[in-house]
């Protein structure tokens, strides 16, 4: 893996911004750089300049590039204790005051958490009381999420997580095997609307009772985390819940005081101020 100069990364982000209006300027430098290195290796670019030229001149390649740069690797029921808390505490609390709940998966990537959520809601018998919007910046990954096809070999891990989540079914009830892939039952996501949306530059488009944005903001620097949190805050009803990754924290964000910690271990926050 080649070492990349920061100046070259800046050149790249400027060209991307000018050409496609995607802004990677405030991405966390170390992981961004690593992903660029990977792109260089994967597509045999000799230099960042060569990559810049290709990105600038080839919109089709740019889509692939975005996918490599923004893909968020996740699992179904990552952190099973988090999902148990949702089922046993957070969702029941929402149901006390709501006849239906609005859920946003912000930065849903390949959709594993969306399917996890739908399994959870299904097993609580409230799937049809739920409206779920799943968004991502990357068209390609959103298409993959919508298709509900995953590698069979990954299901072992997902199943282990599901068992630790103590689901009431077998995870196998939710998919069929097709060769080395599985097809999630499309009925499961009947109340999910998949949308292209840019968390950084996109508009506030709705209000939600529960927002999942787990291990997405870790790819941003602190400035951008601040900005994105403001948008998420605006997209939430008062007393709505926000879930972030177990090793993320809001405490250094400017508007941290508009939230209280509901569960520090699982990093669930509640909006208490507009």
């Amino acid at each position: 893996m080649q070492e990349i100069e920061i100046a070259n990364l800046r050149k790249l982000t400027e060209v991307v911004k000018a050409t496609y209006n995607y802004d990677f300027t405030n991405y966390a430098m170390s992981s961004f750089k690593r992903r660029i290195s990977r792109v260089l290796d994967l597509f045999n670019f000799q230099s960042v300049d060569a990559l810049i030229a290709k990105v600038e001149s080839d919109p089709k390649f740019f889509e692939t590039f975005v996918q490599e740069i923004t893909v968020n690797v996740t699992e179904m029921f990552r952190d099973p204790s988090f999902w148990r808390l949702l089922r046993e505490d957070i969702v029941p609390n929402l149901l006390l005051n709501h006849s239906s709940i609005n859920i946003w998966h912000a930065g849903c990537s390949s959709g594993e958490e969306v399917y996890s959520m739908c399994m959870l809601l299904n097993e609580m018998g409230i799937l049809d009381k739920s409206k779920i919007i799943a968004t991502d910046l990357d068209k390609g990954i959103l298409e993959k999420a919508r298709s509900g096809r995953y590698k069979l070999k990954n299901m072992e891990l997902h199943e282990k997580n599901y068992i630790r989540f103590q689901g009431t079914h077998s995870i196998k009830d939710y998919y069929t095997i097709k060769g080395d892939e599985i097809q999630m039952n499309p009925e499961l996501v009947r109340n999910v609307s998949w949308r292209e949306h840019d968390l950084v530059n996109g508009p506030v488009f709705n209000k939600f009772d529960l927002v999942l944005c787990r291990n997405v903001m870790i790819y941003f620097n602190q400035n951008l985390q601040n900005e994105v949190l403001k948008k998420i805050h605006e997209s939430m009803f008062k007393y709505g819940y926000l879930a972030i990754g177990s090793k993320e924290s809001l405490i250094w964000c400017e508007i941290a005081n508009k939230f209280i910690v509901v569960n520090n271990e699982e990093k669930i926050y509640k909006k208490i101020k507009e």
Partner: peptide, 21 residues
Amino acid sequence: APANYHLHIELGHTFALSTDR
């Protein structure tokens, strides 16, 4: 380094986590 995260060191001497492959 926490479980199931990569631990990166950032310029400015901070940590950054990722869930990359």
